[in-house]
């Protein structure tokens, strides 16, 4: 059970990082940490004690497979995370072009 709580702690660390840091790059790292925490949570859902990888193999019967569905789901969620990350990094580079800083308290053209 404690594993799940540690996973949620990791999620909270990511959230804290996003909310409190002022550097754009650190915010991006925080988002990645959150995504990985969720992925880890999915893996933990599918895991069973002394489970094996969910692969059929020739000439042997596999008992106690772990649940393959969460693994397949996080594969997709990793791809989504990758695309969001790529977009974020590209925008961060462009923002640095325009403002010459990574500090979000100085990036304030929009108000209201």
């Amino acid at each position: 059970m404690s594993v799940y709580f540690l996973c949620l702690v990791l999620f909270s660390i990511g959230l804290y990082c996003v909310l409190r840091r002022r550097n754009i790059i650190k915010i991006i790292i925080g988002i990645s940490i959150m995504e990985y925490a969720v992925n880890l949570f999915f893996i933990l859902i599918g895991y069973r004690w002394h489970g094996r990888a969910p692969l059929l193999s020739q000439n042997q019967e596999v008992l106690r497979m772990v649940d393959p569905i969460p693994q397949e789901l996080i594969l997709i969620s990793i791809v989504i995370g990758l695309s969001v990350l790529a977009l974020l990094v590209a925008i961060a580079i462009k923002i640095f072009d325009k403002y010459n800083t990574f500090d979000i308290t100085k990036i304030r053209k929009l108000k209201g």
């Binding site: 790529a86 990094v89 590209a90 580079i93 462009k94 640095f96 072009d97």
Partner: peptide
């Protein structure tokens, strides 16, 4: 490539 080109352009 795009990330590299962005950095190069800067």
């Amino acid at each position: 490539i795009v990330l590299v080109i962005l950095k190069r352009a800067k």
